[in-house]
């Protein structure tokens, strides 16, 4: 308990500006000046996840996209193509059903499904819970497939090495400008469904310009999870040493 004001909060800090707004004999106002991170609880759990990944030399990739951009198809193909290499384990996030986890298992990798119910993103606590069930192996490649949503998942640190945003040519080429937070938060952009490019109105150069405007440091790889085009570059990215998460 704080001797100054009697507060007993767990996040209690010093009262640098502990003022007494005085109207003598009337109401007292205690002022707590502070800097409490609103996402502090999430960030503390994310730090735990990060330590687990670092201790076990795991590469953790948080895959984000709008619904239908092809995250699960990309993972199925990745699991098939990298068979015999680094062990792959997957945490699947969806509002409902375990369809995606079943697809991942059918493709040959272990998967844990998280259903967020009405929730629109995964947070660090959900991933912590999934990691306890998944028991990721030392040296594994852990994919966290986030809920299909280009807004909310940008904000939540899960302890991952990198967010990778999957866009597709069947979406607009101005997606990075419309959903800038996600493109800013992601280190790599995979532009999927390249095999459909001849059939849709999508300006590849305009997309690259938009993505670069939002995040000049991000890498952009156009791929097709169906035809396999350019996937070697994605696998190359996964083989890079991404350091500590």
């Amino acid at each position: 308990m704080c001797a100054t004001c009697g507060c007993s909060g767990a996040t209690h800090e010093h009262h640098e500006h502990h003022e007494h707004g005085h109207d003598h004999g009337h109401e007292h106002t205690h002022v707590h000046a502070m800097e409490a991170a609103i996402l502090g609880k999430n960030d503390r759990i994310a730090a735990q996840n990060r330590r687990l990944f670092a201790d076990r030399r795991i590469l953790a990739v948080n895959l984000v996209s709008s619904p239908g951009a092809g995250k699960t198809t990309l993972l199925e193909r990745t699991i098939a193509d990298l068979r015999g290499g680094r062990r792959i384990q997957v945490i699947e996030g969806d509002q409902a059903t375990s369809n995606d986890a079943e697809r991942i298992r059918a493709a040959g990798a272990e998967a844990i499904q998280i259903n967020t119910g009405s929730g629109c993103h995964l947070d660090a606590a959900m991933v912590d819970g999934a990691l306890r069930r998944l028991e990721p192996a030392p040296g594994a490649l852990v994919f966290i497939e986030n809920v299909g949503n280009l807004v909310c998942p940008a904000l939540f640190d899960l302890g991952e090495h990198a967010k990778v945003v999957v866009a597709s040519v069947t979406e607009g080429d101005d997606k990075p400008l419309k959903y800038p937070h996600m493109f800013r938060a992601s280190r790599l952009v995979l532009l999927n469904k390249l095999d459909l490019l001849p059939y849709v109105r999508f300006d590849l150069d305009a997309f690259v310009r938009a993505a670069r405007q939002i995040n000049p440091a991000s890498e952009i790889i156009p791929v097709s999870a169906v035809s396999g085009e350019n996937l070697e570059r994605w696998y190359g990215w996964l083989r890079h040493d991404h350091g500590e998460p």
């Binding site: 996040t11 707590h32 609103i38 996402l39 993103h121 947070d123």
Partner: peptide
Amino acid sequence: MHELGITQEIVAIAADRAGDAK
């Protein structure tokens, strides 16, 4: 609609800091 969760955190931080006070 992550603002609902964000706002819950704001309220929790304020409630915790206030202790027994309003």
